[in-house]
């Protein structure tokens, strides 16, 4: 669910005054100013005040804040658990007991102006499909928009995200390319890695050259985009009913970088059969 105008809900402790609005001036007191009681969008403390407001409300209504992840709230009611995960003003919650869910959504609606309640389909750009046998997370819509944005949707697809023995270095002699565009591509691709571990390494390799991108780096990025054309429907599959066991893998390429003798290492963690975390780092 989504909270409408979430930041306007946060109380502020400081005294902040804002000027009256052009076109909406109070005719009786044209010289008066507004003293804020709650936060406005744009104020520096708006995020914090909103978070405090929400967490206070949740704790009051019997939730316990997560110890590691302080944006996760858990409520215990007899044998059932209610999880609430907040991402600024986006909230996902779940429980086996549907009654508990209904109760929570009602209490939220009483307190805030809520919208988009219902089964989870779309969260932070992740498309989530809940099926009989499991849960599928993908970003095909985002991926299509990304390709459209960089005019790559009509390109020929490639079968790999990167050439096998592709080695990138700073390439000082190469011709420079538009840095803004390059960074835009990296940024867009980095968000796509939220559901695409297959391009994680490649994007990270390219991301190292953001300060001074050259033609060769741009070509590598375009190769990734071409790979995405054919694989835009890939995502993560979380099947039902596997055992809860956290398994971690890691690897390193033993000083693979030819210039500074640093290793690139990668890890991934599986919870049961579901891949939950991964990273690639030099």
């Amino acid at each position: 669910m989504d909270v409408q105008s979430a930041f306007l809900n946060g109380f502020i402790k400081e005294e902040v005054y804002v000027a009256q609005l052009p076109g909406f001036t109070n005719y009786e007191f044209p010289d008066h100013v507004y003293k804020l009681k709650k936060a406005l969008y744009g104020l520096k403390q708006a995020h914090r005040s909103w978070y405090e407001r929400l967490s206070e409300f949740l704790i009051q209504s019997g939730f316990r804040r997560g110890k590691v992840d302080s944006t996760l709230f858990i409520k215990k009611a007899k044998n059932d658990l209610l999880f609430v995960q907040i991402y600024v003003d986006d909230i996902i919650f779940g429980s086996i007991n549907t009654l508990l869910c209904q109760e929570f959504s009602k209490s939220m609606q009483d307190e805030f102006e809520m919208s988009m309640m219902g089964e989870l389909h779309f969260f932070l750009g992740l498309q989530i499909k809940q099926g009989k046998h499991g849960l599928f997370i993908h970003q095909s819509k985002y991926c299509t928009e990304l390709l459209k944005k960089f005019n790559m949707e009509t390109c020929k697809e490639s079968s790999t995200p990167m050439a096998i023995n592709c080695y990138l270095d700073t390439n000082a002699t190469g011709s420079a390319v538009d840095q803004t565009k390059y960074r835009g591509m990296i940024g867009s691709l980095l968000y796509l890695t939220a559901s695409r571990p297959d391009i994680m390494h490649n994007v990270c390799v390219c991301a190292r050259f953001q300060s001074c991108p050259k033609e060769s780096h741009l070509t590598t990025i375009k190769h990734i985009l071409k790979y995405l054309i054919g694989t835009r429907n890939l995502g993560l599959w979380y099947p039902h009913g596997s055992t809860i066991s956290l398994v971690g893998y890691s690897d390193s390429d033993f000083r693979g970088c030819k210039t500074d003798r640093k290793s690139t290492s990668g890890t991934c963690h599986l919870l049961g059969c579901s891949l939950i975390s991964w990273h690639s780092k030099k």
Binding site: K13, E14, V16, L43, K44, Q45, H47, R48, W50, Y51, D69, S70, T71, L72, F83, Q85, I86, Y87, V88, I92, G94, F123, L124, L126, I128, G134, L135, I137, A194, L236, Y238, P239, H240, G241, S242, I244, L271, G272, S274, I276, S277
Partner: peptide
Amino acid sequence: IDYDETYALVARLEAIRILLAISSL
């Protein structure tokens, strides 16, 4: 004068994925 603390906690994507993974389990 106008503000004191500004830091707000934001969930990590991993946390969201873990939640989803657990919910599927």
